[in-house]
Design a protein around this nucleic acid. Structure first.
Lengths: 198, 198
DNA sequence: CCATTCTTCCGAATTACATTCGGAATTCAT
DNA sequence: ATGAATTCCGAATGTAATTCGGAAGAATGG
C-alpha cells in the first residue's frame, strides 16, 4: 500500500496518513488534526494539497485504484478461461481487502456517502476496476462458457454485489477469521449461476 | 412513510423530518438546525428525544423497519413456492425503495458508516428483514426447488448483495427511470442461480 | 554572495455546527 | 388554584473544519 510514486512527497505522506486514519476511524470520526499529526505536517498544510476533508478522502481511491488495476491484470496473466479468471479475481480482491482493510472500508463504506461521489474521479476509478468483471463475463459468453441469454451488466451486478456484500459484512463485524475463506465457495456459486447448461 | 403511530407526537415529527432531511442531504450534510426547523421544534428539543445526531439517524431504521416486516409478510400471503416468494420480495423491496428513496439511502448508504452500527437495534432490524430471504431459501431447499448443496447463508448474500448493489447504483445515479424495471430480470437470474437442475 | 521573488508551510484566527445549560412555558396531580 | 413535574427551547459552550497572513526556505538573477 506504501511506496507509490506520487507528484509530491508531502502529498504522499498526507495520503498515507489519511488512508490509515480514515480506515481506522471512518470519515466522520477522523479529524484533520489527527491526520496532520500522523503525517507530521501542520493542519493548514493539508489544505494546500486538498480542497477539504471530503476531497482528501476522495483522493485515496483515485491514487490507489490506479495501482490496483495493473496489479490484478498482472495476476490474471496466463490464466485461461473466463471462470478461472473470475475465480482468481474473487480470490485476489478478497485477499487484497483482507490485507488492506482500511482501504476497503473507505472504498466500500465511506465513499458512497459523499454527496458528489458519482461525479468524481474516484467513481471512475471504481468503475474501471469493476469493468474487469464485465470483460470476464463477456469473454465467457464469447467462448460459450457463460449463458448467452444473460445480460452481462446484470451478471456483473450479481458478482460485484455478492462480493461487496460479503466484504462489507466482514468489515463491519468479524475481521477475525480470514475473509478469503469465502472465496472458493462464492466463486463456485457464481460460476454455477453463470454457466451454460448442457 | 408517514402516519405511523409512535410513543410521542413530538418524536414522530422529528423522525419524519429526520428521514426527509437525512435522505435528501445525507448524514454529513444534514444539520440538526435544519431538521429542527422542518419539524417545527427548537434545536435543543431534538436532544430530549435522541442522544445525539447519530442516534437520531439510527432511530429511523428501527422505527420504520418494524413497520416493514408486517407489510412484506402481508404481501407474501397466499403466495406459494419459494421462487414466487423470492420474486415478490424483490419486486416489493425495489418498489418500496423507489417510493421511499430517503429511507433507502439512509439504510443502504449512510447507516453502515456509523461506528457502532453492528451493535445497534438498527442492525438487528435490518437483520430480521433479510432473515425473510434466508427463510425463503431454506423453504425452497425443503420443497426441493432450491439446490440442496447450496449454503443458504451464502445464497442469501448473493440475493441481498445483488439487490443492494442495484438499488445503490440507482440511488447514486439515475433515480429517473423506474427501479422496478430491474426486478423481473434480477429475479429470473437469481432464481436460475438457485434452481435445482433436472 | 546578497537581494528579490516564488513556493511551501503552518500557528493563530474564524466559522460552522453539535451539544449542553438554565430557565421559561405547559401539563398534571391534589 | 398551586406546587411539582415535564416539555420545550434560546443562548452559551465546545469541538473541529477551514481560512488568513505571514514566516521559512528554495530558486533566480545580478
Amino acid at each position: 500500500m506504501d511506496n507509490i510514486s506520487r507528484e509530491s512527497e508531502r502529498k504522499g505522506q498526507i495520503l498515507n496518513s489519511a488512508i490509515k486514519i480514515f480506515g481506522e476511524k471512518g470519515f466522520q470520526n477522523a479529524t484533520i488534526a489527527e491526520i496532520a499529526k500522523d503525517a507530521g505536517v501542520g493542519d493548514a498544510t493539508i489544505y494546500e494539497y486538498f480542497k477539504n476533508k471530503e476531497d482528501l478522502m476522495l483522493a485515496i481511491p483515485v491514487e490507489f485504484t490506479k495501482e490496483l488495476i495493473p496489479q490484478i491484470n498482472d495476476h490474471m496473466m496466463g490464466i485461461k478461461g473466463a471462470f478461472n479468471k473470475l475465480r482468481k479475481f474473487i480470490w485476489w480482491w478478497l485477499n487484497y481487502v483482507e490485507k488492506n482493510p482500511g482501504y476497503g472500508s473507505i472504498v466500500l463504506l465511506e465513499l458512497k456517502t459523499s454527496k458528489t461521489y458519482v461525479s468524481t474521479e474516484a467513481y471512475q476509478a471504481a468503475r474501471s476496476f469493476y469493468q474487469i468483471v464485465l470483460d470476464i463475463i463477456k469473454e465467457g459468453q464469447e467462448e460459450g462458457a457463460v449463458k448467452k441469454e444473460i445480460n452481462p451488466y446484470l451478471a456483473r451486478s450479481l458478482c460485484v454485489g455478492a462480493m461487496e456484500h460479503i466484504i462489507i459484512r466482514w468489515l463491519l463485524k468479524d475481521r477475525k477469521y480470514p475473509l478469503i475463506q469465502y472465496a472458493d465457495e462464492l466463486a463456485d456459486l457464481l460460476i454455477d449461476s453463470l454457466k451454460t447448461r448442457v
